[in-house]
């Protein structure tokens, strides 16, 4: 499947990536090449095949409902690019 630049821009926006004008063409070509590789799988009929999400047929373990964690705010906020009064700061959120 070939992609055009508008689609590439749409995907980039969904993924929150910025693609400059100068990159757009190459990115489009590369992704189109990869999609061609991927499309090889379309040659096989898989109508009756169950999708496989996990290699092993195992089920989810459950965790006992206990509080096991302590306050780690100071440690974790040392990693933050911007924080104040215990909050992570980001450019204004508009909704």
């Amino acid at each position: 499947m070939a992609l055009d630049k508008t689609e590439v821009e749409k995907i980039a926006h969904l993924a929150r990536l910025h693609i400059s004008e100068s990159e757009a063409e190459e990115v489009t070509t590369r992704i189109t090449d990869i999609l061609t590789l991927i499309d090889q799988m379309q040659s096989v009929d898989t109508e009756a095949v169950e999708p496989l999400a996990h290699p092993l047929d195992v089920v989810q373990r459950l965790r006992v409902d206990e509080v096991t964690e302590e306050n780690q705010r100071d440690t974790l906020q040392q990693l933050a690019p911007a924080s104040e009064d215990g909050l992570y700061l980001v450019p204004k959120v508009l909704d």
Partner: peptide
């Protein structure tokens, strides 16, 4: 990230992600 986003995006899930999971079973 772009490839993955595309494969999961509306209208392409079955043709890509679901198809790949089926190939995975094969």
């Amino acid at each position: 990230i772009m490839i993955g986003t595309y494969a999961l995006s509306a209208g392409f899930y079955d043709a890509y992600y679901r198809k790949a999971q089926k190939i995975r079973r094969l």
